[in-house]
Computed example of a mutant assay.
Amino acid sequence: MQKWKKLSQQEIRKRIFSALSENVDYYTENIIGLPASHLDDKVFYQNAPFLEDAPYLSTLIHNPNHIGCHTLGESESFFKGTQELEKEVIKI
C-alpha cells in the first residue's frame, strides 16, 4: 500500500503554490469559453497578506470550481497544476 509522505508546512506551501501557478489565472488572463469561474473579489477579499502562508485557502480562491479535476486520465489543461495533485491523491 502506497502512503502519502508527510510534508512540512514549507513543503506543502511550495507544492500548492507551484501547482496553482500552472493553472490559468482568472485575475490576470482573459478567459473566454471555459465553463468555470472565480470568486467575486468584491465579495471575497483575495489580497490578504496571510494568504501567502495559506495554501488551502488560496486553492479555494484560485480554483473554486475544481473544474477538470477528479480524473486519472487526460483532462482540461487549464488546471494542470492542481489536477496533478488530485491524481496523486486518487492513486493513493
Rank of each mutant, 00 (worst) to 15 (best):
F17N: 04
E11H: 12
H70Q: 13
Q83K: 11
F78M: 05
P55C: 09
H62W: 07
S77H: 05
P64T: 04
L51D: 03
Y56C: 05
P49N: 07
G73I: 13
F50D: 07
P55M: 10
W4Q: 14
N63S: 10
S18N: 05
H70V: 15
K91Y: 08
Q83V: 12
N65T: 12
N23I: 02
E74Q: 13
H38S: 09
I90A: 02
I12T: 14
R15M: 08
T28A: 08
V89K: 08
N30Q: 09
D40H: 11
D40P: 03
S21I: 00
I31F: 00
K5L: 10
Q10V: 14
K87I: 10
H66C: 11
V89W: 13
M1T: 09
C69L: 15
S21K: 05
S37H: 09
T28H: 07
I12Q: 15
S8W: 13
T82E: 06
K5F: 04
Q46V: 07
N47T: 11
K42M: 12
T71S: 15
Y26I: 02
Y26R: 04
Y27L: 06
S77N: 14
F50V: 08
Q9W: 13
H62E: 10
K91C: 04
E88V: 06
L20M: 02
A48D: 10
M1F: 10
Q83G: 02
I12G: 02
W4H: 10
D25W: 04
I32E: 07
D53F: 08
A36T: 12
Q83R: 13
D40V: 04
K3M: 12
F79W: 12
G68S: 11
G73L: 13
K6H: 10
Y26K: 01
I67P: 01
S37T: 09
Q2Y: 12
L7Y: 12
E76Y: 09
N47M: 03
S75L: 05
Y26V: 00
K5P: 04
H66F: 14
G73V: 12
L51Y: 13
Y26E: 05
T28L: 07
T59Y: 12
F17Q: 03
G33N: 03
I31Y: 00
T71K: 09
P49V: 04
Q10R: 15
Y56G: 04
N30M: 04
T59E: 05
Y56L: 15
L51K: 06
I32C: 01
A54I: 05
S58C: 06
I90S: 01
K5D: 10
F44M: 08
N30A: 06
L51P: 03
Q9F: 13
H70K: 14
V24C: 03
H38Y: 08
D40R: 09
G73Y: 15
A54M: 14
E88A: 09
D53A: 11
L20S: 00
Q46M: 11
L34V: 03
A19I: 01
V43L: 15
K3R: 14
I61R: 10
E88P: 01
T28I: 13
I61S: 00
L60N: 04
P55H: 12
S58Y: 03
E86K: 10
Q83N: 06
N65P: 00
E84V: 07
N63L: 08
A54D: 14
F78H: 14
E22R: 03
